[in-house]
Design a protein around this nucleic acid. Structure first.
Lengths: 245, 245
DNA sequence: CGGGTCGTTGACCGTGATCAAGTAACGTGG
DNA sequence: CCACGTTACTTGATCACGGTCAACGACCCG
């Protein structure tokens, strides 16, 4: 099983504050069980009874919504260390669909597991609440991108947002990262077709703003890109001064 | 002052559960102070220190984000009974701007007021948490609209969302409602220009799906409109079964 | 070797942006 | 009470961005 490997959930949360031993033990419980899904699997779909949340152990996934005519909107991409399912906590049935973008390993735990956290681990509770709220602010930024930005700007925003998130769990990451999503999936995320994602990519590359490697992307001129879309990093810093303990 | 007038905050929350007398007293404290702003006022802007939350007493407001070149995206419209500012709770400075769409009255209260609620009123705490999460799901629906819908569909989604929300505080409302927003503001909300909002309106009216009154709109064929955008009402029902007390 | 997926490129088209002119409603001041 | 200026909405003409359709090449895996 997971043995002594470092938990990516703990790594992610540790970025924001030093976890007590007690907190670490509580979190370990959330990662006891493991399930694997292969690329393309639908983990749950709309209207399923949603009794579980999931910690991502490895691999990327995404949450999406469908339109009657087959169009699709990806609303959130999940990375190792993320907790999936918070948004549906107030509803009896799932309001979104979850699919695996590549082969993944998840740790499911019942909603009741949260009750234990909420009741006994105020430090983690406060942090989870903050993360939920932070995600909301990120959604607002995304809304701005989809509502008002050109195709190139949307792609730039998408890439910068990814880099900022990935840096939380991988501090050694510089400016190159793996991107295990098809251009169709990227398009479904930023409201474009695969064709225009391709064109936006080549345009940015031609301008020397990014470079593309085998299965990844390198951010060449981060400052310039950030200025293009007035990018604010919502992940790096968070106000934890009001936390208990 | 507000005398014995019914609080719209209490009205709104009562829609979901029966509030205890103790809960009502706690909520009343949040509505003690009052400030008025006239139409067009900026209540706060990005990077302001955000020490207050606001309960909307009367009038409509909206939260928005700017782009460097002057484009603007409205990300949330606020009605009487709404609490404004939850999203910024995890940040030291405001991440959004707040403006009054018409003359409004707000009840500001310091963030510390929330600590009192969190500590002493578990029923309201659970409800507020649920509302915050519910708002997140609504944002996902909006993301889908901005990412994948045509101009007419966007306007339809916008109107249906408004109606659903307004029905929470005004149960007697049928299908006609006041719309105190300019078409430019509506465009900034759904990612269109004022010109195309106008065209979408006249198109929907010509098809007999809506009708326009002096300062408002009437939903003529709600079922048809809902089918157009696969609309799900996120406001009417909420899972309160897990609440304490 | 063959089939499938993914990315690229070109041609064409359509939706919505942009620019501009005109109208209606309203508030203000003379 | 009217004249004026402002704001909001409408409508038309033109344009451009991104969608759609199609063909092709690269790569992967069976």
């Amino acid at each position: 099983m997971s043995e002594t490997s470092v938990s990516c959930l703990i790594t992610k949360l540790s970025h924001y504050l030093t976890l007590t031993d007690d907190s670490r033990e509580k979190l370990a419980i959330l990662e006891e069980e493991e399930i694997s899904f292969s690329r393309g699997s639908e983990i749950y779909t709309i209207d399923d009874a949603n009794e579980h949340l999931y910690v991502v152990k490895s691999g990327w996934l995404y949450t999406y919504l469908d339109l009657p005519d087959g169009r699709r909107q990806i609303v959130k991409i999940h990375h190792p260390g993320d907790i999936i399912g918070f948004a549906d906590i107030a509803f009896r049935q799932a309001t979104t669909n979850l699919a695996a973008a590549e082969d993944v390993v998840l740790c499911p735990f019942p909603k009741r597991g949260l009750r234990m956290i909420f009741g006994e681990a105020p430090q983690i509770t406060a942090l989870m609440f903050s993360i939920a709220v932070r995600d909301q602010v990120v959604l607002l930024d995304t809304l701005r991108a989809l509502g008002r930005m050109s195709s190139r700007e949307r792609l730039v925003y998408f890439l910068l947002d990814l880099v900022s998130r990935l840096r939380i769990t991988n501090r050694s990451m510089t400016d190159t990262f793996r991107l295990p999503l098809t251009q169709t999936e990227i398009g479904d995320t930023i409201g474009l077709t695969n064709v225009y994602v391709s064109r936006a990519f080549t345009a940015l590359e031609k301008d020397g703003l990014i470079a593309r490697t085998a299965k990844g992307v390198r951010i060449v001129s981060e400052a310039e890109l950030k200025a293009m879309v007035d990018f604010a990093d919502r992940y790096e810093q968070m106000d934890t001064t009001w936390f208990p303990e």
